[in-house]
Design a protein around this nucleic acid. Structure first.
Lengths: 121, 121
DNA sequence: GGGCTGCACAACCAAGAGGTTGACAACCCG
DNA sequence: CGGGTTGTCAACCTCTTGGTTGTGCAGCCC
């Protein structure tokens, strides 16, 4: 749906079945039938899942006679890890420089201690 | 939708708007209005996005008078990176031990050379 | 060449996601 | 207390998603 690559990758991995397939493919290439075996769903459903993974660039499919072996393209993972690491680091950095942030705050209450809700009466 | 935590996290980050919000929150906490400002969508839509992020455990919302400051919970990222790293490493490892994998194969054609399609006649 | 296997494409359907508007609750300010 | 500000909840609409079944094509096997 979303045109950008990162969205497609995240979206593709948001499904447990597809993550499971990726896990399976990390061990080695597999055919559609092999991938479909563990699941209750129809072969067509699996084929759809593979299309999603392929559109996300997570897998590639080659031809080998009438079989279509599926191959994991692990380098796409880097796209995610880069994004994640960037903001995680940024957030951690922010914790480290908490004093600066507090100094920049107006005259708000300093959240040094988490205050509980006040008595309702 | 999917009950498991990892799916919720991936799904939450599959939306560019929500990733953008996370990027914004990495700089520092913000109110809903502040977060909504850059976007064309209604405040309610932003509120929904935040709910998705909150359900994924990516952000938390506190109370501060009538304001609801949103805070990034970066540690959830670890959940993803762990998953990703696991299978990326596994896939990379597989490349390294390609010979073993080939040896373990049955009597299939060894894909040492990518054979082109046979002559159709 | 006929049939079986492996897989994809198309049409359809139920459920969910993301957007909208409208109403309203909680809180500060005067 | 009344009014503005901040944000949520509910109802509704539409498009997408994940599933189904049906059909059909490409390629081995006999």
């Amino acid at each position: 749906m979303a045109a950008d690559a990162l969205s497609r990758v995240f979206s593709a991995l948001a499904d447990p079945t597809r993550r499971d397939m990726v896990a399976r493919l990390a061990v080695g290439d597999a055919t559609v039938n092999e991938l479909a075996a563990p699941y209750e769903v129809s072969l067509q459903a699996v084929s759809k899942h593979l299309k999603v993974l392929e559109d996300a660039g997570l897998v590639s499919r080659s031809r080998e006679a009438q079989r279509r072996p599926v191959h994991l393209e692990a380098q796409v993972f880097d796209l995610m890890t880069k994004w994640i690491e960037r903001y995680r680091r940024q957030a951690e950095e922010r914790y480290r420089r908490l004093d600066d942030v507090l100094a920049a705050m107006p005259d708000d209450v300093a959240p040094t201690a988490a205050q509980e809700e006040g008595t309702p009466s």
